[in-house]
C-alpha cells in the first residue's frame, strides 16, 4: 500500500529533535500502551500489527504520536479478531456473559520470555541470487502490506548478504501463512536513488525478499 508510512526520501516533515537517553516513556499511559500491545494475544503476528498501523489514514497518521498509533492499531486488531467490541473499548468493561480467556503469560514469565531468542528464519527455497549479483527492485505496488519501500522500486543495487529464507510479510500480514522467501541485504548507491547531487561514496542498504527482486 503506497501510504504515508512509506516515507523514505520525503523532505519537509519537520526538524529532528534529539533527546537524552532517559526517560524511556514520556507519559505513564505510553508505558501501558506498549505493555498491553506486547502482552496482547494479537501480538502473535508482527506483520499484521504493522499493517494495522499503516492503515491509519494518512493525515491522521502524520498527526499522531507513536503510542497513539500503537493504541489505535491495538484496538482495531482486538475488534477485528473478535476479542472486544468498540462499545466495550469505549466503556472500559465487558458485555455481560463474556467468555473469559487466559492471559498468554504471567509476570514471572516476562523477563525469560522477552530475553529468549526467537527467529524469523524458516526452511524455504534455495536463493536465486548470490553476493555480488546486480539486481533491480521490481516496480511493485501491492494494495496490502509490503516491506519494499517506494524509493528503491525500479532501482539497481548489489546483493551484499544472504540471510536464508525468512517469513514473508506480504503474505503473513494477511493471514496467508508464513510463505518463507529468501532474504538478502541489497546495497543501492546514493546516486542511483537520489541522482547526481548525492555523495558518490554513499549508499543505502535494505533487507529485501526475493519476490521484490529481478536480475538486472
Amino acid at each position: 500500500m503506497n501510504g504515508v508510512h512509506d516515507m523514505g526520501g520525503m523532505e519537509n516533515l519537520g526538524a529532528v529533535a534529539p533527546e537524552p537517553e532517559a526517560p524511556v516513556f514520556h507519559h505513564a499511559w505510553e508505558s501501558r500502551v506498549h505493555a498491553l500491545s506486547v502482552a496482547s494475544p494479537t501480538r502473535n503476528n508482527i506483520d499484521a500489527g504493522r499493517h494495522q498501523r499503516e492503515k491509519i489514514p494518512g493525515p491522521e497518521y502524520l498527526a499522531m504520536t507513536y503510542y497513539e498509533k500503537w493504541f489505535r492499531g491495538l484496538t482495531e486488531l482486538l475488534v477485528a479478531r473478535g476479542h472486544a467490541t468498540w462499545a466495550e473499548i469505549v466503556r472500559g468493561y465487558a458485555e455481560p456473559g463474556f467468555a473469559k480467556t487466559t492471559p498468554l503469560f504471567s509476570a514471572a514469565e516476562v523477563t525469560p520470555r522477552f530475553m529468549r531468542r526467537g527467529s524469523f528464519a524458516r526452511d524455504g527455497a534455495a536463493p536465486a541470487f548470490t553476493a555480488g549479483d546486480t539486481v533491480r527492485a521490481r516496480n511493485l505496488n501491492p494494495p496490502g502490506h509490503t516491506r519494499l519501500p517506494r524509493y528503491v522500486r525500479g532501482r539497481e543495487g548489489v546483493i551484499v548478504a544472504r540471510h536464508g529464507a525468512h517469513v514473508f510479510p506480504d503474505s503473513h500480514a494477511h493471514g496467508k501463512g508464513e510463505d518463507p522467501q529468501p532474504l538478502y541485504t541489497v546495497r543501492f548507491a546514493a546516486r542511483e536513488l537520489w541522482g547526481p547531487t548525492a555523495n558518490p561514496r554513499d549508499s543505502v542498504c535494505l533487507d529485501l525478499w526475493e519476490p521484490y527482486l529481478e536480475p538486472a
Binding site: 498491553l36 502482552a39 509476570a107
Partner: peptide
C-alpha cells in the same frame, strides 16, 4: 488507555502483574 487496560484485564486477555 485506562479503560482499555481494565477491559483487557477483565476479559483475561492480559495479566495486570505481567503489564
Amino acid at each position: 488507555v485506562k479503560a482499555l487496560e481494565s477491559l483487557m484485564v477483565e476479559k483475561g486477555l492480559v495479566d495486570p502483574a505481567a503489564l
